[in-house]
Amino acid sequence: MNAVSTSLDAPSLLGGRPAFAEVAAEQLDAVYRYLVYLTGDRAAAEDLTAETFEKAFRSWRRFDPRRGSPRTWLCKIARSVAIDWFRAETRRRRREETYARDVSLVEEFGDGLPGPLQEALHELSPAEREVVALRILLELDGPSAARVLGISQTACSTRLSRALRRLEERMDDVRE
C-alpha cells in the first residue's frame, strides 16, 4: 500500500469523532512507517506501534478532531512512546557497555529500498529520519509535523532540507 492521500489528514469536516477501529485501520501503516524511520529497528517499531495504539485507545476520548487530524495525534503519541524506548535503550547499552548497535541494513527502512539509500538513511540521526518520515512518507503538512516534533515550522523545514540534502549527497556519491 502506498502512502495514503492527504485527505485523511484533514480534520473531519463534520466535526465528529470517527470510530477508533476505523482510524486504527487507516493509520496503522503510517504510524508503523514513522516508528521504523525513527527507531531504525523494525522489531522495535512493531512493539512500539502496538503500544502507541494501546495508549491511543485508552485516551481516544481526549482526541479533539477540531485541533488536528488523527494521524498527527497518533504520531505525537508514537513519538512519546519512542522517546521512552530511546531512553531505555540508552540505559541498556550503558549497562551492557555496547556503544554501537549492529543493525541489519537489509530492508531496514523500506521494502526494496536501494542499498545506498538504505545506508544513507542509516547515517541520518533519528531526528532527521523522523522528519523525513512525517513529511515525505506520512505527508503531514508543515504545521502538523512541527506540532508532532514540538519545534517551529522553520526548524522543521530546515531539518527536512538538511536531511534530504544529505540523502541526495549520498546518492550522488554512489552514482559517481
Binding site: 521504523v36 512493531e46 506501534t49 521494502d111 540534502r165
Partner: peptide, 20 residues
C-alpha cells in the same frame, strides 16, 4: 534529485506486517 529520493522513499515505504 530530491524528488527522485522522495519518490523512492514513498515507493518503498514499509508496511505493517499482518501479525502487527
Amino acid at each position: 534529485n530530491e524528488m527522485s529520493v522522495e519518490r523512492l522513499l514513498r515507493a518503498h515505504a514499509p508496511h505493517a506486517p499482518e501479525s502487527l
